[in-house]
Simulated assay, not measured.
Amino acid sequence: MTVQRGWFKSSKSGPNCDNCVEINADAPDVVGVRDSKDKAGPMLAFAPLDFAAFVDAARRGELASV
């Protein structure tokens, strides 16, 4: 499955951020995540509920930074 439209970065990334991740949730059964520097490169695919749990944990500060 190729998901090419609808990619976006967080509004907190800033307009000139080329070193971010992009998200695409256009498909109902998958959330795509890719490196903004390598748009033709690999994409990670997550189930929507799993991705939502990840985002919620990040917002709560439950993820360790490396």
Rank of each mutant, 00 (worst) to 15 (best):
G61W: 07
P42F: 07
S13K: 07
D56T: 14
L63F: 12
A25N: 15
D18F: 09
N19P: 02
A40F: 07
K37A: 14
A27D: 11
D38C: 04
M43P: 00
P42I: 03
N19Y: 10
M43H: 13
D56N: 13
I23N: 01
E62A: 15
I23H: 00
P28G: 02
V31R: 00
V66D: 06
N24W: 03
C17G: 10
L49F: 12
G32T: 02
G14D: 09
L63P: 04
W7F: 08
F8R: 15
A53L: 05
E62H: 12
E22R: 00
V3P: 01
A45M: 05
R60N: 11
S36N: 07
F51L: 08
D38F: 11
M1Y: 06
G14P: 05
V3Y: 13
S36Q: 08
V30P: 00
D18M: 14
V31L: 11
A57G: 14
A45K: 07
F8E: 07
A58P: 03
L63G: 08
A40P: 00
D18G: 15
G6T: 05
A47Q: 15
S65R: 15
G32S: 11
R59F: 06
V21R: 01
R5D: 15
D26K: 05
K12P: 00
G41I: 02
L63I: 15
K37I: 03
L49T: 14
G41Q: 09
A25S: 13
D35T: 05
A45R: 12
K39E: 13
R34A: 02
L63R: 09
N24L: 07
S13H: 06
T2Q: 13
D56Y: 03
V21Q: 03
L49D: 14
F54K: 00
R59E: 08
A47I: 04
F46P: 00
A47S: 10
D56P: 01
V33G: 06
A64F: 11
A45G: 15
E22P: 01
K12S: 12
L49I: 08
A47P: 04
V3A: 11
A53R: 11
D50M: 06
K12I: 08
F51P: 05
A53C: 02
D38M: 10
G61V: 09
S10D: 06
K37R: 15
N24K: 03
D18W: 04
S13N: 11
A45I: 04
L44G: 09
P28I: 10
D56H: 12
N19M: 04
V21W: 01
L44P: 06
L49E: 14
R60M: 12
A47M: 07
V33W: 02
L63A: 10
M1S: 11
G6E: 04
A45S: 12
E22I: 02
C20M: 07
D26W: 04
E22C: 01
V55Y: 05
D26C: 10
T2H: 13
M43S: 13
N19T: 13
A53W: 01
K37Y: 00
P48Q: 09
P48L: 05
G32C: 09
P28C: 09
Q4D: 14
M1R: 11
V66F: 10
D38A: 13
A53Y: 02
P42D: 06
